[in-house]
Simulated assay, not measured.
Amino acid sequence: MTLTASYERCRKLNASHGRSYYLATLLLPAWKRPHVHALYGFARYADEIVDSFGMTEDRETALDGLTARLATALAGEPVDDPVLPAFAHTVRSFGIDHADIDAFLRSMRADLTVNRYATYDDLLGYMEGSAAVIGTMMLPVLEPLPGAEERAREPARQLGLAFQLTNFLRDVAEDLERGRVYLPQEDLGKFGVEVEDLRRPRAVPAVRELLAFEARRAKDHYRSALTGIELLVPSSRPCIRAAYELYGGILGEIEAAGHDVLVTRARVPRRRRIAIFARHLLAASSADRAERRVTVETP
């Protein structure tokens, strides 16, 4: 697997499985996109081991194998793997913190044995590795403004949490098929919801109230993330604004359906996705040209 082929494999994973985010990445300067794809591709690759309905081999063994190959790749040694060469190259190129990678793998490993979370704080502990660190790993590629690196970290974490919680609300039925309930057990009890209520063809009022409560939490994370966009270089802002609107749009679709996520999977209509992309395209092109012009003119 050449490095070029590995980056292309990651791009295809992003295009196939992360349609909304892939559309947003098209607003980035061309040189940044492969690195974002590599980070997404690695996350998806590990996620498929613990989540795929088609996985037939032992998941723990498969995750152990991925972890071992990753250690080899991060040490600069060649590995027989379709995704890791690109991921390791991006990690080395941007000095991505290995502690974030370790935290991500711990959360993936938790999915092998943990299928309930007692409180929201417990769930946040899981999402720290499954989502918040994805935001902080992306940050060096997206380029915070000089001097804003530390200030940009918390909004990046919050955006990862917002996206993850949005996915949890959208995918209640799908996660339950895997035997998992990411909605905190404390909250189910507060609203009088039983797990069997989540198996119904339609959401009963108590389930809708529970999901509305969790949606408000997601909105809090979105609000906490918003200030971070202006801390990025201008050429990265349109991508993150578009991703913010696209994922926020999923939450909006959930609300528009009265928080009944059991009838159908919430999706932002294609026409609206294209409209969001088009609205940010001019700003992305202008910022990219401006940054390249400064680079050329600087002695």
Rank of each mutant, 00 (worst) to 15 (best):
A86Q: 00
H221D: 13
F42C: 01
G258Q: 03
V233C: 08
E186Q: 13
E60A: 13
L3Q: 00
A62R: 10
S20E: 05
P269W: 03
A206G: 00
A278R: 15
P234M: 09
V181Q: 05
A215R: 07
S107D: 11
L161D: 01
P82W: 00
R9S: 14
D122R: 06
E297M: 14
H221E: 06
R106C: 09
E143C: 10
L159V: 08
G192M: 09
A257C: 07
D58P: 06
D51W: 10
L232G: 05
I134F: 15
A62T: 08
L123Q: 06
L246E: 04
Y21C: 02
L28Q: 02
L210M: 15
S285T: 10
F277Y: 14
R180M: 09
T136M: 04
V83P: 01
I101A: 03
P144W: 00
A62K: 08
H89L: 02
Y222D: 10
D80P: 02
R9E: 06
F168A: 04
L176Q: 12
L246G: 02
A24R: 02
N14A: 14
R19D: 00
K32I: 03
A110W: 05
L28Y: 04
A88S: 02
G252W: 02
A75G: 15
G249N: 09
P234S: 11
A290D: 14
S236Y: 05
S286W: 13
A86S: 02
L26E: 07
P85M: 01
M138L: 15
P85R: 00
L27A: 02
E154G: 03
V207F: 01
P299D: 13
R151Y: 11
Q185S: 10
H17Q: 13
L74D: 12
R44N: 04
R217N: 11
A131M: 10
A212K: 06
K12R: 15
Y40R: 00
A203I: 07
